[in-house]
């Protein structure tokens, strides 16, 4: 069906898959015990803003909900635009569970308003010998590791090691071609 849609020029964007987002919660324990990567107390969610008043309403609601929820969990948050005009909600909290909850809240609200297709990714920072990120791709509903080395290079061997150890715990993006890098992550 997707091929047929493509041939007719009607291909649409895949819907956001939310189910596996929470998998990072349990995986974070293994990451710490067997690899020595602690949760970096920060997470982010990145999406493409849209030109429409419906979107403005959705964004206001996201911020209202965030304000309320962050007061509850004691999370600090900020909303910022990056160099490519993508919007980031950056969350900071020593409690990893609260980060996951709030990331879920933001993405869920956007999906409910019909902007799930515009979700680029959710990112969790982990710190060990090096800073690594686990990136959640909403299109495939899977995670992949991203270890930037500075100067737009990535530490591929570390990424592959992370994959081989976490493969059983996290829904992993199988196709390494979809391990899209993200430079200039604001967290």
């Amino acid at each position: 069906m997707r091929i047929l849609d493509a041939i007719l020029g009607k291909s649409s964007l895949p819907k956001a898959k939310m189910e596996k987002l929470f998998a990072i919660s349990t995986a974070s324990i293994t990451l710490e015990t067997s690899l020595g990567f602690r949760p970096g107390e920060a997470a982010g969610i990145c999406f493409k803003p849209i030109e429409s008043s419906r979107y403005d309403t959705a964004r206001r609601e996201v911020e209202d909900l965030l304000q309320y929820s962050c007061r509850e969990t004691g999370t600090r948050y900020r909303v910022q635009k990056d160099d490519y005009d993508f919007l980031w909600v950056v969350l900071e909290d020593p409690e990893f569970e609260d980060l996951v909850t709030n990331v879920h809240l933001v993405s869920q609200t956007l999906v409910e308003h019909g902007f799930g297709e515009q979700l680029l990714c959710a990112i969790y920072r982990f710190t060990g010998k090096r800073q690594v990120y686990w990136v959640y791709n909403f299109k495939s509903g899977s995670y992949y590791p991203f270890a930037p080395k500075g100067d737009n290079k990535r530490d591929s061997s570390l990424e592959f090691r992370l994959r081989s150890i976490m493969d059983s715990e996290l829904p992993m993006e199988k196709n390494v071609e979809r391990w899209y890098p993200l430079w200039g992550i604001p967290l």
């Binding site: 964007l13 895949p14 515009q118 680029l120 791709n137 071609e177 899209y180 890098p181 993200l182």
Partner: peptide, 23 residues
């Protein structure tokens, strides 16, 4: 390559992530 044109590559990367295309 990515090091020659980092900005162009990053723009395409993000669009591909949204459109669910290989880069």
């Amino acid at each position: 390559s990515e090091s020659e044109e980092p900005e162009l590559h990053q723009m395409i990367t993000r669009l591909c992530a949204i459109a669910d295309l290989p880069k």
